[in-house]
């Protein structure tokens, strides 16, 4: 297994994984839209143990997280959003989904200054709800009725990302440079 950032060339097989696994599907362009708007936020899990079949093999995607920043946040607070997360049934129990999510969350804070991350999940999806709530610490905000095309409701969930900010601040060793402070480069040379 290899967990790494998504690249444009991964997208056909990400789309394939999505079509094979999930009822919510998207055009390739929607994946591109994520990859080109917030390239730091989407990750893939790649099966690196497959023998090559041709010189043009693409790495097989067994899991992915497709994430974005909310462009016009209703509450005015910068935050991320998980558009789609999937791990192949054959590759479960390795903690892939959790690892993908953690990478994405870190980048949301570092690159885009996100304060929290939100997502929707089918109310019947016990395994996913367990991951979000018990493993990652998401809280259920509300239920959105008939969110999905087949009429199922969604839980709208949210995770505060302050704990990541906290960690980053500690790592930086007491915040030598405050956010927003202008760098010392000579102006107007």
């Amino acid at each position: 297994m290899d967990i790494r950032l998504l690249r444009a060339s991964d997208i056909p097989l990400i789309q394939h994984a999505n079509l094979e696994n999930l009822p919510e599907n998207y055009f390739l362009k929607y994946y591109l839209y994520h990859a080109l708007s917030w390239p730091q936020l989407s990750y893939v899990a790649v099966d690196v143990s497959r023998p090559q079949k041709s010189p043009y093999d693409y790495p097989k995607i067994v899991g992915y997280v497709l994430a974005k920043m909310e462009e016009e946040p209703a509450d005015g607070v910068q935050h991320g959003h998980i558009t789609s997360l999937s791990v192949m049934r054959t590759h479960r129990r390795l903690g892939i989904a959790e690892k993908l999510m953690r990478q994405s969350q870190l980048a949301m804070v570092e690159t885009f200054g996100a304060h929290y991350v939100s997502l929707h999940v089918r109310v019947s999806n016990k395994a996913a709800i367990h991951l979000y709530r018990d493993t990652l610490g998401f809280k259920t905000e509300r239920t959105e009725s008939k969110y999905y095309a087949d009429g199922e409701d969604a839980f709208s969930m949210k995770l505060d990302l302050d704990f990541i900010r906290e960690q980053l601040r500690e790592e930086e060793g007491g915040g030598e440079e405050k956010e927003g402070k202008e760098s010392e480069k000579n102006a107007g040379k």
């Binding site: 690249r7 444009a8 394939h16 990859a35 080109l36 079949k53 043009y56």
Partner: peptide, 18 residues
């Protein structure tokens, strides 16, 4: 950088096994 990555991939789009 993501855009340049896209352009270079599109240039060889049809090499895909699909």
């Amino acid at each position: 950088r993501a855009y340049v990555d896209l352009i270079r991939w599109e240039d060889r789009l049809r090499e895909h096994p699909f």
